[in-house]
Simulated assay, not measured.
Amino acid sequence: MSAEQRLADLGIELPDVVPPVASYVPAVRSGQYVYTSGQLPMAEGALRATGKVGDGDDLVDPARAKDLARTCALNALAAVRSLTGSLDTVTRVVKVVGFVASDPSFTGQPGVINGASDVLGEVFGEPHARSAVGVAVLPLDAPVEVEIVVELA
């Protein structure tokens, strides 16, 4: 089954490509690979949440952050499709890098970035290499940011 068909079967409609917020492009193709810029959890032109991830009243809940990482991954797929015309040209997701703006006591970054990995696995069916990194702050005070590298046929 094709990636585009899996998206349809899952009821996933990719968003429009998020316009850059600085001097970069959403994705670049080099040979058989597409590299996306870091994608924030933007939906309909707005950041879905702000702040640090952790367990506390004034922090972004880890479960919410996991859902935000999923949004980031879908934005990354939209950026890939904008260059390739179709996700059916993608043979696999090679690498996922996820950044989590974390409260100093939070160590659950891998669980948060599972939100991105899980949806990519549903669409492409293969595991990928991955990094999940805790950081002090992200652009626009986003709680999470995800970038991907895909290989094309």
Rank of each mutant, 00 (worst) to 15 (best):
V17H: 05
A69G: 06
S37T: 15
D141E: 09
G121A: 08
V137D: 12
Q109W: 03
S117H: 13
G115A: 00
V146D: 00
L77D: 02
L77E: 03
A142D: 00
G85N: 06
G111P: 14
D16M: 14
P26D: 00
D88R: 06
L83S: 03
D88G: 07
Q5F: 12
A73F: 05
A116Q: 00
R29L: 03
Q5N: 12
E151R: 08
N114R: 15
V80H: 00
R48G: 09
D88S: 07
A49H: 09
G111R: 03
S37L: 11
L138T: 04
A129F: 08
G54V: 06
G38A: 13
R29D: 01
A73D: 03
D58C: 09
A63R: 13
D16F: 15
D118W: 13
R81S: 08
L40Q: 09
A142E: 02
V100P: 12
L47K: 03
T84A: 11
N75V: 01
Y24W: 11
A43N: 15
V135N: 02
A76I: 02
G56W: 05
A27I: 05
Q39P: 13
A142S: 06
E147D: 14
V53I: 06
A136N: 14
D16S: 14
P20L: 11
I148R: 00
L68A: 02
P26C: 01
K52S: 13
V18R: 04
D58V: 13
L68P: 02
Y35T: 06
L68Q: 04
G51E: 05
V144R: 00
S102A: 13
G134K: 03
R130D: 10
R130L: 12
L40C: 10
E147C: 13
E44F: 10
Y24A: 08
L10M: 10
S2E: 11
S2N: 12
I148H: 01
A49C: 12
F124M: 01
G51A: 11
S86D: 08
D103N: 09
A78H: 04
E147P: 11
V144H: 01
V123F: 06
A136H: 14
V90R: 01
V150H: 01
I12G: 07
V133Q: 04
V94I: 11
A78V: 07
V34Q: 07
T107G: 11
D58Y: 12
A132H: 03
L47G: 05
Q109C: 07
S30D: 14
